[in-house]
Amino acid sequence: MTLPDIYISNIGYALGNIRQTLEFSHVNGLTYSSTELLTDSGFHFHHMCNAAQSTYDLARAAVDNLLTSGGTGCESIHGILYATCLTCNGNLGAWQDFKQSGDVKHLMDFPASHLQADFGLENAFLMGINQTACTSLLSTLRTAKALLSSESHLEQLLCLTADRFPPGAKYEQTYNLISDGAAACVVSRHGGRVKILDAHHISNGVMAQASDDETAGFYFNYSYRVIDELLKRNQLSINDIDWIVPQNTNIKAWEVLSSILRFDYQKVLTPTREDIGHCISGDNIINLKHADDNGTFQPGDKILLPMAGFGLNWSCVLLEKV
């Protein structure tokens, strides 16, 4: 049986409504590392939600941004795959309401439900993915491709991730400057910007509570491994890859990784790193949108979207520009 081609069509994203300089955030105690270190790492600004902006507001704005770009009929969206990095962002209910009432329905006020209702996605089923941290959105892409390949009645699935850090959180994780934000894309069997060729994921649960140093220590050879295994599975070598669109992380990290992969560092694209920083699980898709909108890719170009996250998890999606 020949599997259908599956594509990413529309992409939208939204960021926290306060754009802040790294210096300001450091002075206000929102980072662990010095301004100098994070600047050297390639970060300058990040985006945080103000008190009135919720995670769900981010998700709505991202989907709104996606839908207003046109070409996506709500009636043909047959599923919402809603990802969060932080599990607390997967429930809109208030803990205080549960404490007062003892009713766990306050712990099951799912944003995917609200999203379906607010956008009238009546034909969509709902699914949540929230235990693979920064790799969550890539997990939804993998799942969406599998679902669309195996269930012929499904036409398009809405994949999104939305996270804001809770009040009091530091906006730095494993030496990366963080932005609150959401990213959404439509995965479709009807064509789009890029074709999803394959996706691969490695999890190492023993390292669930890895220290920052362990996370950094595991980063390189597991990132290499997830890419290497994905390429081998598709009978490809790194020479077949035209672009890598990774997460927004320390600028040196990809200098090192591209050297190990024997990949031209000039073709590693993180166009939003300085302005956005690490937008948790949305970086790849946000960077992909910017690069594609700028006309970077040519039809037939093969693109890798690698991501590492807590858990520990490593994920990589292989795309081809249409």
């Binding site: 950094a216 990290a253 090192v256 050297s259």
Partner: peptide
Amino acid sequence: ILKPLFTDLDAFESLASVLKGLSG
């Protein structure tokens, strides 16, 4: 834990400069 990847000197220097600033 995986075996280390062999890398060239420039990449190792980049790594060392990153970790020198950031790690424990």
